[in-house]
């Protein structure tokens, strides 16, 4: 493997470790979202505050909600993969063209 590949591998492992380690080492926790923790903190310190507007649409269940979150990630991941694939294909094509023209130059002195 080239040095470049090793660096890539180390970066990926670093990202994975940042999330795996708290799960492995941390005390048992339900990992509630910070957004809902903040909402709870407000309800605790300001018990008389009533939200004055409600969601226009709420997913019927947590399954539907996580499905919609997955959909969001899938759309983003799909578009990102498409762009990176196209950029990579374009470079490969350009290199092939450059190689072809340079060999042609060698043949015709």
């Amino acid at each position: 493997m080239t040095r470049r590949r090793w660096v890539t591998l180390a970066l990926v492992l670093g990202v994975v470790a940042l999330f795996a380690l708290p799960l492995l080492l941390g005390a048992p926790s339900d990992y509630a979202g910070t957004d809902s923790l903040a909402t709870e903190a407000i309800e605790q310190s300001n018990p008389d505050y009533v939200p004055w507007f409600d969601h226009v649409f709420s997913p019927g269940s947590t399954e539907i909600e996580s499905g919609l979150f997955a959909l969001q990630a899938a759309i983003g991941g799909g578009v990102l993969g498409y762009v990176l694939g196209r950029l990579r294909g374009r470079r490969a094509q350009r290199e092939a063209v450059a190689a072809a023209t340079s060999t042609r130059d060698d043949v015709t002195p």
């Binding site: 990992y31 509630a32 969001q72 983003g76």
Partner: peptide
């Protein structure tokens, strides 16, 4: 745009015992 779309959809656990 896609990068923001993916990353803001994924909640990840943190050392504090909550996720974001």
């Amino acid at each position: 745009g896609a990068f923001t779309f993916v990353l803001s959809a994924i909640k990840l656990p943190s050392v504090t015992g909550s996720s974001s």
